[in-house]
C-alpha cells in the first residue's frame, strides 16, 4: 500500500474512534447531559455541558501535543527512553509555578491568568538552559544532552521540594493540585492558546518528516544525504519543547502519554515519521480522552488526577515493552 493511502486510511479509522470516545466522554459523568436539548437550544444554556466539552477539547489537544512531542524527541535523540519532559520542561515549569504559588502570586491576573504564563516561560527557559549546557560549538551530543536534562531536572525538583516544605498550609493544596496535573479548563483563552501552539507545531513538524526520518540514521549519514542537520535539529527541539511547555503550563505534569503512545504506534505503523506523527497525534487524543473518562467517573463525584490514570495504564505496558528485546522500540 502506498504511504499516502496508508496515512489517510489510518487517520479515518482513528478519527472515528476519537468521535466515539468523545461521545462517551460527553455523556458519561455524575451529571446527566440532556443531549437533545443541547442540540435544540445551544450549548451556552448548559454550563456543565459546556465545561465538559472544553475539557474534552483540552484532552484532545494535550494528547496530541504530548504524543507528537514524544515522537520528535525519540526521533532526534535516537533514544527509546526520550519523552517530552526529558529535557527538564516539567521540573522547570513546575518550579516556576510553585515559586509563584508560594510567593502568593498564584491568583494574579492581568486580563489573563499569570500562573500558566509563568510556568510556560519557566519550562521553555529550562530547555534552553539544558540545550546550551550540552552544546559544544555547533554540535549537541545526545548523551551530554540527556545527562544535562536529568541533572537540571533533579536540581529543579529539589527546589520544588524545598518550596513545598516551607510553604504554608493554605498554599499546599493548590501546589499539590498543580503538580498532579488536571484537564480542567479554568479559562477558555488557555484552551485557545494551547490549541494554536499544538496545531501549528504539528503542521510544522509534518513539513520536515523526511528530514526527521533521515536524521534517525545518525548525524553524519544525514549530513551526507543533504540534510542541514543542525538547523533541522534546532527546529525540532524548538517544536518539541514548545509543545511540551505549553501543555505543562495549562495542565501540569501528565506523564507516560508522550512516552508510550509513540512506541505503540511505531510497533503498529513502523518508524516512518510521515505516518507516525499523524497517527500518534490522533491516538494520543483518543488515549487521553479515554483516561479522562476514567478519571472523572471512577470515584465520582470526586475526581482522580489524570496523571494517576495515564501512569497506571501506561506503567505496566511500558514494563511489558522493556521485557521484550531492545530492538522492538524502534
Amino acid at each position: 500500500m502506498k504511504i499516502k493511502n496508508k496515512i489517510i486510511l489510518s487517520s479515518i479509522v482513528l478519527i472515528l474512534v476519537l468521535l466515539i470516545v468523545v461521545f462517551i466522554s460527553f455523556i458519561a459523568g455524575p451529571v446527566d447531559i440532556p443531549f437533545n436539548k443541547i442540540i435544540s437550544e445551544g450549548i451556552d444554556s448548559f454550563p456543565i455541558a459546556r465545561l465538559r466539552l472544553y475539557r474534552i477539547l483540552l484532552a484532545i489537544i494535550v494528547g496530541m501535543s504530548l504524543s507528537v512531542s514524544g515522537v520528535i524527541f525519540q526521533g532526534i535523540l535516537r533514544n527509546p527512553l526520550a519523552e517530552p519532559y526529558l529535557l527538564g520542561v516539567s521540573s522547570g515549569a513546575g518550579f516556576a509555578a510553585v515559586l509563584s504559588l508560594t510567593l502568593g502570586l498564584g491568583g494574579l491576573t492581568f486580563g489573563f491568568e499569570l500562573l500558566p504564563v509563568v510556568a510556560f516561560v519557566g519550562g521553555f527557559l529550562t530547555v534552553v538552559l539544558v540545550y546550551n549546557l550540552a552544546r559544544v560549538g555547533e554540535k549537541v551530543p545526545v548523551q551530554t544532552l540527556l545527562l544535562a536534562g536529568v541533572v537540571v531536572g533533579a536540581v529543579f525538583s529539589s527546589l520544588i521540594m524545598f518550596l513545598v516544605s516551607v510553604s504554608r498550609m493554605n498554599q499546599l493544596h493548590s501546589i499539590i493540585w498543580w503538580l498532579l496535573g488536571s484537564l480542567e479548563v479554568v479559562d477558555k483563552n488557555q484552551l485557545i492558546a494551547v490549541s494554536i501552539i499544538t496545531i501549528s507545531g504539528i503542521v510544522f513538524s509534518m513539513l520536515y518528516t523526511r528530514e526527521l526520518n533521515i536524521l534517525t540514521l545518525g548525524d553524519e549519514p544525514a549530513l551526507n544525504l543533504g540534510v542541514n542537520v543542525n538547523k533541522i535539529k534546532k527546529i525540532f527541539f524548538l517544536i518539541g519543547s514548545l509543545l511540551a511547555a505549553s501543555v505543562v503550563a495549562v495542565c501540569g505534569i501528565i506523564g507516560f502519554v508522550g512516552l508510550i503512545i509513540p512506541h505503540i504506534m511505531r510497533l503498529i505503523v513502523g518508524p516512518d515519521h510521515r505516518i507516525l506523527i499523524p497517527v500518534s497525534a490522533l491516538s494520543g487524543a483518543v488515549f487521553l480522552v479515554a483516561c479522562d473518562i476514567l478519571a472523572r467517573n471512577l470515584l465520582a463525584p470526586a475526581e482522580l488526577p489524570i496523571g494517576v490514570i495515564t501512569a497506571f495504564l501506561g506503567g505496566p505496558f511500558f514494563i511489558f515493552l522493556l521485557r521484550k528485546k531492545r530492538r522492538i522500540f524502534f
Partner: peptide
Amino acid sequence: SFISFSYK
C-alpha cells in the same frame, strides 16, 4: 551504517 529504526 548503524540503523536502529526498522525501516524497509
